[in-house]
């Protein structure tokens, strides 16, 4: 564990110094994420000009939810997204060989090697908006509830990572340049909507098989509406199940990897 932590610190150092090589790009990327945040906030602000409730939530409750998914997204962009972007390249060029022969888990290496320094700046901004939404929220909450909320959001980030991996792993078989990562980002809109809007089989899809609705909506629901044991059990089962499925597919994928010629 200590070895992995030390390794991760080296990843951080390397990523920051690399990010500073292209300063203009560093600045542009921060701007890009800010625009993404503003667009998301404006979207709901405009919708609330025409309605009082969306998915059963008022505007201030919705802002807590928006703050939640922006926070999860910024953590993902900082820690995992760049790695996922490069993943297909490593497989198709055979660069995975170098990760397989190192005395470190290749999954750890492939998932965490690139830390996005510019997104880290935006993580701070997303967190600031999250805090603002909590301050503006007129409901009452305790410190324990807040800590649980944050823990559920961390779990949401983990779910987000697992789904992302499952979308990129087919590259081992298809050898395409991006896997299904574009599809993943399209599906990601489901994370940005309150889960109560999904009914019937769509609800089953987004809460069980592609559990985007569990990433930010369930944590926000816990925070706004209080503890629901069924939801908590559901969240735990799906998170564990997803992790097991992801590891299973990862091992299968590694077995079918045929190095540079693949």
């Amino acid at each position: 564990m200590k070895r992995y932590l030390r390794l991760y610190l080296h990843f951080l150092q390397f990523s920051f110094s690399r990010a500073m090589e292209f300063r203009l790009d560093f600045f542009f990327r921060i701007m890009m994420d800010i625009i993404y945040y503003v667009v998301n906030i404006l979207l709901f602000k405009i919708l609330f000009l025409h309605t009082d409730l969306i998915g059963g939530w008022t505007e201030e409750q919705m802002m807590v939810f928006v703050g939640s998914y922006l926070l999860v997204d910024s953590i993902n962009m900082t820690i995992f997204a760049t790695n996922m972007w490069w993943f297909p390249t490593y497989i198709n060029r055979g660069d995975l060989d170098y990760y397989l022969i190192r005395p470190v888990s290749p999954l750890f290496f492939l998932s965490l090697r690139e830390f996005s320094a510019n997104s880290f700046m935006n993580l701070i901004l997303a967190f600031a908006f999250f805090v603002y939404a909590l301050v503006a929220y007129s409901g009452t909450f305790t410190i324990v509830e807040l800590i649980n909320f944050l823990l559920l959001l961390l779990n949401g980030t983990f779910i987000y990572y697992c789904i992302q991996m499952l979308m990129v792993l087919p590259v081992f078989w298809t050898h395409s340049s991006r896997g299904f990562i574009d599809l993943f980002y399209s599906l990601g809109i489901a994370m940005e909507r309150p889960d109560k809007i999904f009914k019937g089989w769509l609800r089953i899809l987004f809460t069980v098989f592609l559990p985007f609705a569990l990433i930010a909506s369930y944590p926000a629901k816990y925070f706004i509406e209080g503890l629901n044991l069924n939801d908590l059990l559901h969240l735990t089962l799906v998170s564990v199940g997803l992790w097991i499925v992801m590891l299973f597919v990862w091992k299968k994928a590694l077995r079918s990897y045929s190095s540079a010629s693949s």
Binding site: F22, L24, D25, F28, R29, M31, M32
Partner: peptide
């Protein structure tokens, strides 16, 4: 002029 502009 700038090396990386995909964010733009």
């Amino acid at each position: 002029w700038a090396d990386n502009i995909w964010s733009l």
